[in-house]
Amino acid sequence: MSTATSLSGFLRTRRARLHPQDVALPDFGGVRRVAGLRREEIAQLAGVSVDYYTRIEQGRVSNCSDTVLDALARALRLNEDERRHLYHLARPQRTAGPARRQSVRPMLQRLLDELKDVPAMVMGRRMDILAWNPAACALLGNYGDLEPAERNIARITFLDPASRELYADWSSCARENVAYLRLEAGRSHPGDPRLAHLIGELSAKSSDFRRLWAEHPVQDKTSGTKRFRHPVVGELELIYETLRAADDPGQALITYAAQPDTSSHDALRMLLAWTAPTAAAAHQPAD
């Protein structure tokens, strides 16, 4: 998966979602041969020539200026995540080789050990799960039962049938994961063979992943609400937060918590009390 191919697909899908009325362009009717806006319309909105925009979309321009990229972002109505993604694709990083295997930061591991009543995990590059606490085992399953190569959020979401039962809004979770993986593919080690292998495996084994990947969604993993159908305590609505160290954005601490004085709060406390002995024995990675 080259960055030129990714840039081309990204720009085409963003053109396809816009229509003349969305950007105050005249629509003269008739059958449009392409979905959404034409290349010449995007070029007009961005203030560049049609030939130059065409070469950008085909990945044949390697030195786009900030002015041009900002103009394209405005023309395509990109949000902040999409705008950053455009910059990463237009100016891919050059790395000396594949990224090294990650180990959880000691301070993040210490935080995990201190978070007794809050399900939490550390997510690394490619959405790999680097570490977790007993409460995460109780809520999400025992990652220690998986081989290290299988401890990956996107892989579990699409290839483990249990995830479709656990997440009440599985379709939304799946799209969010693909959107984050797209962001990762654009900003971190574009030549990473492990990332390419993961995307290839998911594309080969999951039609849902193939469909979503082709749409080029882009979204950072920050915070939100997830609904669960847990086999032990039933329905839960939890708020998740993603915390990153400023000096190491390649690792993130993800926590799940319930609003106080809610049925979800009571159910989570009950779950952690019931599963504490088993989860505590199983939460450490076994590489």
Rank of each mutant, 00 (worst) to 15 (best):
N79A: 09
V48T: 15
D247V: 13
R110A: 00
T278F: 06
A258P: 05
D247C: 13
E215D: 04
P106F: 03
R33I: 00
L18K: 02
F158I: 13
A246P: 08
G97Y: 13
A43D: 10
R17E: 00
P106W: 02
L37G: 01
R175F: 03
I254M: 10
N152F: 02
R77H: 13
E201N: 02
I199T: 05
L130E: 01
A179R: 05
A258R: 02
L108C: 01
G97E: 15
R187V: 05
T225F: 15
T225I: 15
D248W: 00
D128A: 06
G234T: 05
S188A: 10
T67D: 14
H85Q: 12
R175K: 11
T242Y: 00
R164Q: 15
P106D: 00
F28L: 15
Q102E: 14
Y180N: 03
E40W: 06
A280R: 09
A73C: 06
Y52D: 08
E41F: 11
V48N: 13
A24M: 11
A75Q: 02
R74V: 15
C137N: 14
G47V: 14
P231I: 07
D208S: 14
R77S: 09
S264K: 09
R91D: 08
A185E: 12
E165D: 11
A282G: 13
M123W: 07
A136V: 00
C64S: 15
A204K: 08
R100S: 06
V178F: 03
L140I: 12
T54R: 00
P285Q: 10
V34H: 04
L18N: 02
L89W: 09
L111C: 04
L78S: 11
A279R: 03
A204Y: 06
H88T: 07
D261A: 07
A273E: 15
R83F: 11
L271I: 10
Y240E: 09
Q93H: 05
I156K: 10
Q102R: 02
E150A: 15
A96H: 06
P161G: 14
P249N: 02
A154L: 09
E241V: 07
D261T: 05
M270P: 03
A71M: 10
E40C: 12
K205Q: 15
E176V: 08
D169A: 15
V232H: 06
H189S: 09
N133C: 01
V233E: 01
T222P: 06
G250P: 01
R210S: 15
M123D: 11
Q259N: 03
Y180E: 02
A196D: 08
D220H: 12
V34A: 01
Y87S: 11
D208G: 15
T5H: 06
Y180W: 08
D192V: 04
L89D: 12
L108P: 01
A282C: 10
R105K: 07
L253P: 03
M127S: 13
D128I: 01
G30F: 09
A179Q: 08
F28I: 09
R125I: 10
S171L: 07
S172R: 15
R110Y: 05
N79R: 06
A279Q: 09
T95K: 05
E80Y: 06
D145R: 01
R126M: 01
T13W: 07
I56E: 03
L78C: 12
G29D: 11
S49L: 08
E235T: 08
